[in-house]
Simulated scan of single mutants.
Amino acid sequence: MTNAVEDVIEVQQLLAKYAVSITKGDIDALLEVFTPDGTYSAFGEVYPLAEFPALVDAAPKGLFMVSTPLLDLRGDEGTGVQNLCFVDHATHDMRIGYYNDAYRRTADGWRLHTRAMTFIRRNGEHDSGRPHSHARR
């Protein structure tokens, strides 16, 4: 593990931007945290960045609370895990889980290359979720 302090802080700020942007519904800022060829995985599917706005639009809205990520940065690439607690704005129902991430350093700084969601169920199972209502085109 070669986590330079500056790199760790930059990735932490990147992930904070993800959480704040998705909470506020700022899709443009949310897309900026990914590499152009980035993907998001959940619900048994891998979504390219071009499909991410429609996926976010179809998802419940609320507060994304995330933990400090556990990072392993090596040169210009890295991986990490970040816990998540999502609270639905209308019902205050919660969903919990964690993201498994891959990062890349780009000319614009560190970016998410892949982000995969794992949900933690009440029965203790960890899975990628049930099929989402988002219709792929």
Rank of each mutant, 00 (worst) to 15 (best):
V81H: 06
A58R: 08
S133N: 14
K61L: 07
D28I: 06
N123V: 02
A107D: 11
P60N: 08
N100Q: 13
T23I: 13
P36A: 08
R104N: 09
N83C: 08
I27N: 00
S133C: 03
L31F: 10
H92F: 12
N123D: 15
T114F: 06
H132S: 11
V87I: 15
E51L: 14
L15A: 07
D93K: 13
D7P: 02
R130C: 00
R137D: 13
I120R: 05
I27Q: 00
C85L: 15
R130W: 01
L31M: 14
G124W: 01
H89I: 12
F119D: 02
P60Q: 07
G124M: 05
D37I: 05
F119N: 03
S67Y: 02
N3H: 00
R115H: 11
A4E: 13
E6C: 00
L73M: 06
Y47W: 15
R74H: 09
M117C: 07
I96T: 07
K61D: 07
V66C: 12
G129H: 03
Y103H: 04
Y47E: 04
D101R: 03
L49S: 02
E125Y: 01
L14I: 09
I27C: 00
R105W: 10
D7M: 05
Y47C: 06
D37A: 12
D108S: 14
L15W: 08
G78P: 03
R136S: 12
D93G: 03
G80Q: 05
A50T: 13
D76V: 11
V33G: 06
F43D: 04
H89L: 12
M117T: 12
A58V: 09
P60C: 09
V11L: 03
P53E: 04
D76R: 12
Q13A: 07
R111I: 10
V87Y: 08
F43C: 08
V87S: 14
A90H: 12
I120W: 00
G97R: 00
G25E: 11
T39I: 03
V66S: 06
R74I: 02
D37Y: 05
G38C: 05
D28F: 06
A135N: 10
